[in-house]
C-alpha cells in the first residue's frame, strides 16, 4: 500500500472510530488521516458506512469509540487530564464552523433565496457585517456559475443549480475542510457534470475534501487518494490509478467491476437522452464513431 509522504500534521486524524445504531455496528474501527489540500474519495458498496463516517466527522452523529481530531481539535470532547468531558451544543457548533458539508439531497433552506442561503451562516453564526458578506456571497455565486440567480428560491432552481448553491453556502463559512456525501447521486445524469466541474475547480484551488462518490471518473481524475470501505472497515486505499485500475482485494475488485458496468449503462443512458433531444446532431457524431470503431 503506497501513500504519499506528508510532512506536518494531518487536518483530519481519525483513530479507531466505532459507531453502532441500536446494537448494529456500522463503523468497526476506522483509521484515516487527511492532510491539508488532499482530496480523498470514499468508495464502497451501499451500507458500508461511508455516510455515517462523514457525519461522525462533523458530529451529526456521535461516535462510540476512537477519536477524531480536525485541525488539532478533538471533536465533541474536551480532554482534561485524560478524562473526556462532553462539549456543550454551543462548543460543538463552533467546531463545525471549520467544516463545510454538502448533502446528497442539497438541503437548501427553501424559504430563503439562493443569496440568503449563502449569507445566512456568516451573518447569523459568525456575526459578520451584512454588506461584506453580501459581496462575498455574490462572488461565490459567480464561482459556482450562478451569477444570475441570486434572488431565485431553491424551488425555482434545477437540482444541479441547487447543489451548486449548497456548495457555495458551505464555502461562505470559509471552511478548512469540505465533506461531500454523494453530491451528484440525486441528480439527473445531464446535470452531474456542472456540479463535478465546481468540485474539480475547488480541488484545484487547494481545498481539503473528503468525497463520498460513485463517480469513478471523478475519483480517478481528481482524488489524491481513494479509500475503499466495506462492512464498516477500510479495506484498501491508495492512489486512484493503483486502487481503481489494479485492486488487490476481492471485495474491491467485485465492487469496481459492478461500478464499471453501471458507468457503461450511465453513458448509454446519456447518449440516448441526447439522441432524443437532438437526433440530427448526434447522428453525425455516431457516424464518426462508427467509422473510427463500432460500439456494441
Amino acid at each position: 500500500m503506497s501513500t504519499t509522504q506528508h510532512s506536518g500534521e494531518p487536518l483530519v486524524h481519525a483513530v479507531n472510530v466505532t459507531k453502532s445504531f441500536h446494537g448494529n455496528q456500522v463503523l468497526k474501527g476506522i483509521d484515516m488521516d487527511v492532510h491539508p489540500g488532499e482530496v480523498v474519495c470514499l468508495l464502497g458498496p451501499s451500507g458500508s458506512g461511508k455516510t455515517t463516517f462523514l457525519r461522525c466527522i462533523n458530529q451529526l452523529e456521535s461516535i462510540d469509540g476512537g477519536r477524531i481530531w480536525v485541525d488539532g481539535d478533538l471533536m465533541g470532547y474536551a480532554d482534561r487530564g485524560g478524562t473526556l468531558h462532553h462539549l456543550t451544543d454551543k462548543q460543538i457548533a463552533a467546531q463545525r464552523r471549520e467544516i463545510g458539508m454538502v448533502f446528497q439531497r442539497f438541503n437548501l433552506f427553501p424559504h430563503k433565496t439562493a443569496l440568503e442561503n449563502i449569507m445566512e451562516a456568516p451573518i447569523q453564526v459568525k456575526g459578520e457585517k451584512k454588506a461584506a458578506v453580501r459581496e462575498r456571497a455574490l462572488a461565490l455565486l459567480e464561482q459556482v456559475g450562478l451569477k444570475d440567480k441570486p434572488s431565485a428560491y431553491p424551488a425555482q432552481l434545477s437540482g444541479g443549480q441547487q447543489q451548486r448553491v449548497a456548495i457555495a453556502r458551505a464555502l461562505a463559512m470559509e471552511p478548512k475542510l469540505m465533506l461531500f456525501d454523494e453530491p451528484t447521486s440525486a441528480l439527473d445524469p445531464e446535470l452531474v457534470g456542472e456540479v463535478l466541474k465546481v468540485m474539480r475547480q475547488l480541488a484545484k484551488d487547494g481545498m481539503t475534501m473528503i468525497v463520498v462518490t460513485h463517480e469513478m471518473s471523478f475519483a480517478r481524475e481528481v482524488a489524491d487518494r481513494v479509500v475503499f470501505m466495506d462492512g464498516g472497515v477500510v479495506v484498501e486505499q491508495g492512489p486512484p490509478n493503483e486502487v481503481i485500475s489494479n485492486p488487490q482485494h476481492a471485495r474491491t475488485k467485485s465492487f469496481l467491476s459492478r461500478m464499471r458496468q453501471e458507468e457503461q449503462e450511465h453513458v448509454e443512458h446519456l447518449l440516448e437522452a441526447a439522441q432524443r433531444k437532438e437526433p440530427d446532431l448526434l447522428a453525425d457524431v455516431e457516424g464518426g464513431q462508427t467509422a473510427a470503431g463500432p460500439r456494441d
Partner: peptide, 19 residues
C-alpha cells in the same frame, strides 16, 4: 435535513429552531 444543514453550517440548536 433542514436542521442538519443548519447545524452543519455551525448554527446552535436554538438558532436552528428560530431561523
Amino acid at each position: 435535513g433542514q436542521a442538519e444543514a443548519a447545524q452543519a453550517i455551525g448554527m446552535s440548536p436554538g438558532k436552528t429552531m428560530r431561523r
